[in-house]
């Protein structure tokens, strides 16, 4: 159980986290979504006591970060990929962390096996790929067999097999009754991994709901129309609450109208239609819609999601 209450963090003049309040419950995988720079990592650092809140509190298992008697057993965290000395072996890295909490070699070997690193356990971690570095970080997070697992961007750098592995692992951890809190800015992976989602933008809470509801509630239906007279059709469809994106000379993306309406309008004016497709907005699009105004540095072509 993670309880975040009126949490704020200020760095100089920047308010990185702004009065966040949410609860992460055990038993399901909870995603933590937000664009880069939205305050996800800062929030997670405060969860394990690396950064001190400017205001508010964050409790894991009912306790403040420095109150845990056996910190690694209460909350296991991956906060930065490859946060290991490159000259030290995976085993020594994990062993050094484990012994601080009184955890022995046996558990070190267990998490090495669990994360698929048993064969490279005694190699220097400097030679590890990005994916292996992630696995090492996840192994470290699991050392204390913790009741709460916090992973910051764990999918980064993993190959498809690795993503599958982490999805299974997180499912299993949640099924065992643990609290699993996973951040990402990659919506597609998150949609596959999490059952519940907490969305932030510019340090503020934007949504806290099941993933299915998140996509359902926030996604407008979008209709893709292909027509040789796309420009003319566009003029006919324009209206209040209707957004039309001209994809190409012959293709439009229409939001705010049903495919039936569009087809009827085209037929009434004799405009040929070559394609009329309805697409459910992906989590990615729903997310972008939600955070559009919250993105600090937006690329010009940012708002084009995939169909």
């Amino acid at each position: 159980m993670i309880e975040v209450n009126e949490l704020s963090k200020r760095y100089g003049s920047t308010l990185a986290v702004d009065s966040l309040t949410f609860t992460v419950t055990p038993g399901v995988v909870t995603g933590f979504l937000g664009p880069n720079g939205s305050g996800k990592s800062t929030t997670m650092r405060m969860l394990v006591g690396l950064d001190a809140p400017t205001a508010g509190t964050v409790k894991v298992g009912g306790r403040l970060p420095h109150e845990h008697e056996v910190p690694l057993c209460q909350v296991g965290a991956l906060l930065e990929a490859g946060a290991a000395h490159p000259g030290r072996s995976a085993f020594d890295h994990l062993h050094a962390l484990a012994v601080t909490n009184g955890i022995g070699r046996r558990r070190v070997n267990e998490v090495l096996a669990l994360s698929g690193l048993a064969e490279v356990a005694h190699r220097r971690s400097g030679g590890f790929s990005l994916g292996m570095g992630q696995r090492l970080g996840i192994a470290a997070a699991l050392l204390g067999d913790p009741a709460t697992v916090v992973l910051d961007e764990p999918v980064n750098g993993l190959d498809p097999e690795g993503i599958l592995w982490i999805r299974d692992l997180l499912d299993r951890l949640a099924a065992e009754g643990r609290t699993v809190f996973v951040s990402s800015h990659l919506m597609r992976e998150m949609a596959q991994i999490a059952q519940h989602v907490i969305v932030i933008g510019k340090g503020r809470l934007m949504a806290d709901l099941p993933v299915a509801e998140f996509t359902g509630a926030l996604s407008g239906r979008r209709v893709t129309v292909r027509s040789p007279q796309a420009a003319a059709l566009r003029e006919l469809l324009l209206g209040p609450d209707v957004t039309i994106t001209t994809v190409s000379r012959t293709e439009l993306d229409v939001e705010g109208l049903t495919s039936e309406h569009i087809g009827d309008v085209a037929a009434a004016r004799g405009i040929p239609v070559h394609q009329l497709t309805t697409s459910q907005a992906s989590l990615e699009e729903a997310f972008m819609k939600l955070t559009r105004e919250a993105v600090e540095y937006r690329a010009p072509e940012f708002a084009r999601g995939e169909a």
Partner: peptide
């Protein structure tokens, strides 16, 4: 949730006992 609630089905490939038993941060361990 109380401090030492063990996961209901035990840890992945880990000991089924309370993971916090006998553990904790001490200067000699650090």
């Amino acid at each position: 949730m109380t401090l030492t609630v063990p996961p209901s089905t035990g840890p992945p490939a880990g000991p089924a006992a309370d993971p916090a038993a006998g553990r904790g941060v001490t200067l000699p361990r650090v």
